[in-house]
Nucleic acid binder design. Structure first.
Length: 498
RNA sequence: GGCGACGUCGCCAAGUGGCAAGGCAGAGGCCUGCAAAGCCUUUAUCCCCGGUUCGAAUCCGGGCGUCGCCUCCA
C-alpha cells in the first residue's frame, strides 16, 4: 500500500513517491516573528506535524525543515511602534514561537534556519537570477521578472494576463511588469541592512524560502507545505525563483492546508479576529485542541468555536475513560475463567480492523478524521468487551486488554494526541478536613484521607446506609474528586470544577 | 471582474460510481442503592434542477448559497 497525497500543482491526489526510497524531505513555511502565533497558524503547523509523524510511523526517515522569517516589514513596523530594535522583536517572538510549538506537542524541525543567517546565500541566488536574465536591479532594489519565467502561475493556476486584469496590482514605474516582485530591498534609514552588490539592504520575503529549502534539502525536495493562503503569491514566487535560478524542478508535491475561520471568515492577524494559541491552551488541554483540529480534514476550512472545543473535550474524555478502564480492569484479580471466546475474538478482530482502517485513512492524503473514526469504532468495541466481561476478567484476558490499550495509545500518538489513562489526581488538602469530619481521620496526608473516606463509604454502603455513603461522595465532589463504583471496588478520579 | 474550493443527520464531520464512518447533542432501555463510566435501540438518500449510467452523495451541465486567492497573511 502506498501513501497518496493531494498535490496543489495538479489538484489531484497522487501516489507519493519520494525522490529517495524510504526518505522524505519536507519544508514547511514558518512564521514571520512579529507577534505570537494565533490558533489558525497553529493549525497549519499541527497539520504538518501530523504528516511528519505519520511518515515516521510508516517507516520513513524524515528531514523536516522550517524557516523563521526574522527580517520583514511587519517586524520593522512593530519595532517602531514599541521603540525597540527589530532584532529584539524577532528574538522575542522567535522564542515565543518555539515555546508555542513545544506547548502544542509539535516536534522540533530537523533544521530551523533563520532568514538573517542566510543572507549571503540569498545574495548568491539573486546574482544567479540576474545573470540568467530573470531579475534586474533598479536603484538598489532587485526585482524578479515574471515574464522571464514562462511557467509563472503554474502552481496557483493563473496566468499573468489574468492577474494584471485584476484591479489590485500595485503600480510601480520601476518595475518592468506590475507583477514583478522584490528579491532585494534598499534599506531605509534605521532599518536592518546587510551589504550587497546593490547596496545596503535586506531580502524580499520569498527568496529566503527558496534558498533555505534548497540549502537544507537539495532540489527537488519531496514536500513543500503551508496554508492555502500562501499558494499565491508566496509559493508561486518561490517556485519561479528556484526553478529559474537552478533550471531544475523545485518541489515534487505541494501540500496546502485549509484555513481556520471565525464566523465563516478567515482568521487572520490583519482582520483582527484571531485567538492566540497560548490563550486557547490556557483553557483547553493540548490533546483536546489537537483532537478538535484533526476531526476535520486538513485541507478543509475549519470553524473555530469553543462549542467545538467543548465537544472535542467530551470526545477525548471518552478515550481517556476507556484507557483508564482498560488499565483498571487489567488490575483486577483474575477471578474466573474469563471472557467467552466469542467475546475475545470480537475484540481481537476489532483491533485488527482498527489498525487496518487507520492506515488506510491516513494513507489517503492523511485523512485524520477518518483515522479518528477508526479509533472511536475500536473504542466502542473495547467498551463493549469491558461491559460484557468486566466482572469476569480472567488471566487470559489480560493480554488482550493490554493490547487494546496499547493500540489506542499508539495510534493516537501518531496524531500527537497523548493519552495515558493516568489521571492526575492532585489530592486537595481540603480532603483532610472532610475525612476528619466524615471518617474520623486524624492524620494530615490528603491521599490517606481519601483512602479513609473511601473505606468509610464502603462500610456505610455495606450497612446500606446511603445517607452516610452519599455524604462521602458529595464531600469528595466538593473538592473535584469523583467517586466511581466499579466491579473492582470504588475508585477516585479528578475532574476540574469548571 | 478573474481563478479555485466547498454545500452530507439538530450541530460538527468522513465518504468521490454499488445498499451513508465517527464525534457531540436528543429520546427510550440496560447496568447502579442512587450516581459515574459504559452498553443497546433510535434519528439522513446527501442544496435545487436536468443529464450520463444497470446503478450517483460520488461523474457532466445549469442554478442558488458559502468561503478562499487575486495586497501582508499559516
Amino acid at each position: 500500500m502506498s501513501i497518496r497525497v493531494h498535490n496543489t500543482m495538479t489538484r489531484t491526489k497522487e501516489e507519493f513517491v519520494p525522490r529517495e526510497a524510504g526518505k522524505v524531505a519536507m519544508y514547511v513555511c514558518g512564521p514571520t516573528v512579529y507577534n505570537h502565533i494565533h490558533i489558525g497558524n497553529a493549525r497549519t503547523f499541527l497539520t504538518f506535524d501530523v504528516i511528519r509523524r505519520y511518515f515516521i510511523w510508516r517507516g520513513f526517515d524524515v528531514t523536516f525543515v522550517q524557516n523563521i522569517t526574522d527580517v520583514d516589514d511587519k517586524i520593522i513596523k512593530r519595532a517602531a511602534e514599541e521603540g525597540i530594535a527589530p532584532a529584539d522583536v524577532a528574538d522575542t517572538y522567535t522564542f515565543a514561537f518555539r515555546a508555542a510549538m513545544e506547548s502544542l506537542g509539535i516536534e522540533r524541525p530537523t533544521a530551523q534556519p533563520l532568514a538573517t543567517q542566510t543572507i549571503p546565500q540569498m545574495i548568491d541566488m539573486i546574482e544567479r537570477l540576474i545573470a540568467g536574465g530573470h531579475a534586474y536591479a533598479v536603484d538598489g532594489d532587485v526585482y524578479f521578472s515574471v515574464r522571464s519565467f514562462p511557467a509563472y502561475g503554474k502552481l496557483s493556476g493563473r496566468d499573468i494576463d489574468d492577474l494584471e486584469s485584476g484591479a489590485r496590482v500595485e503600480v510601480d514605474d520601476r518595475k518592468q511588469d506590475p507583477l514583478d516582485f522584490a528579491l532585494w530591498k534598499t534599506a531605509k534609514p534605521g532599518e536592518p541592512h546587510w551589504p550587497s552588490p546593490w547596496g545596503e539592504g535586506r531580502p524580499g520575503w520569498h527568496i529566503e524560502c527558496s534558498v533555505m529549502s534548497e540549502g537544507e534539502l537539495g532540489l527537488p525536495f519531496d514536500i513543500h507545505g503551508g496554508a492555502s493562503d500562501l499558494i499565491f503569491p508566496h509559493h508561486e514566487n518561490e517556485l519561479a525563483q528556484s526553478e529559474a535560478a537552478t533550471g531544475t524542478q523545485f518541489v515534487r508535491y505541494w501540500l496546502h492546508g485549509g484555513l481556520l475561520q471565525v464566523n465563516a471568515e478567515k482568521m487572520s492577524k490583519s482582520l483582527g479576529n484571531f485567538m492566540l494559541l497560548k490563550d486557547v491552551l490556557a483553557v483547553y488541554a493540548v490533546p483536546v485542541v489537537r483532537l478538535f483540529m484533526l476531526q476535520t480534514h486538513y485541507r478543509s476550512p475549519l470553524e473555530f468555536s469553543t462549542d467545538r472545543l467543548d465537544e472535542a473535550r467530551t470526545a477525548f474524555e471518552r478515550i481517556e475513560n476507556l484507557v483508564r478502564n482498560l488499565e483498571w480492569a487489567k488490575s483486577a484479580k483474575a477471578m474466573s475463567s474469563g471472557a467467552p471466546s466469542a467475546s475475545r475474538e470480537l475484540l481481537a478482530s476489532a483491533r485488527d480492523a482498527a489498525r487496518e482502517k487507520f492506515v488506510a485513512e491516513m494513507d489517503d492524503d492523511f485523512n485524520t478524521a477518518g483515522a479518528l473514526g477508526a479509533i472511536f469504532e475500536f473504542a466502542r468495541a473495547a467498551n463493549t468487551f469491558l461491559a460484557d466481561n468486566q466482572s469476569d476478567v480472567g488471566v487470559a484476558d489480560i493480554e488482550l486488554l493490554v493490547h487494546a490499550k496499547e493500540l489506542i495509545i499508539e495510534l493516537l500518538a501518531v496524531l500527537g494526541v497523548v493519552v495515558t489513562g493516568a489521571v492526575d489526581i492532585e489530592f486537595p488538602p481540603d480532603v483532610v478536613g472532610i475525612a476528619n469530619q466524615l471518617a474520623g481521620y486524624a492524620g494530615t496526608d490528603p491521599e490517606e484521607a481519601v483512602r479513609a473516606l473511601l473505606a468509610a463509604r464502603a462500610a456505610a454502603r455495606a450497612e446500606r446506609n446511603w445517607t452516610a455513603a452519599d455524604a462521602v461522595r458529595d464531600g469528595l465532589a466538593m473538592v473535584g474528586l469523583v467517586v466511581e463504583d466499579t466491579a473492582q471496588g470504588a475508585r477516585v478520579t479528578y475532574r476540574a470544577v469548571n
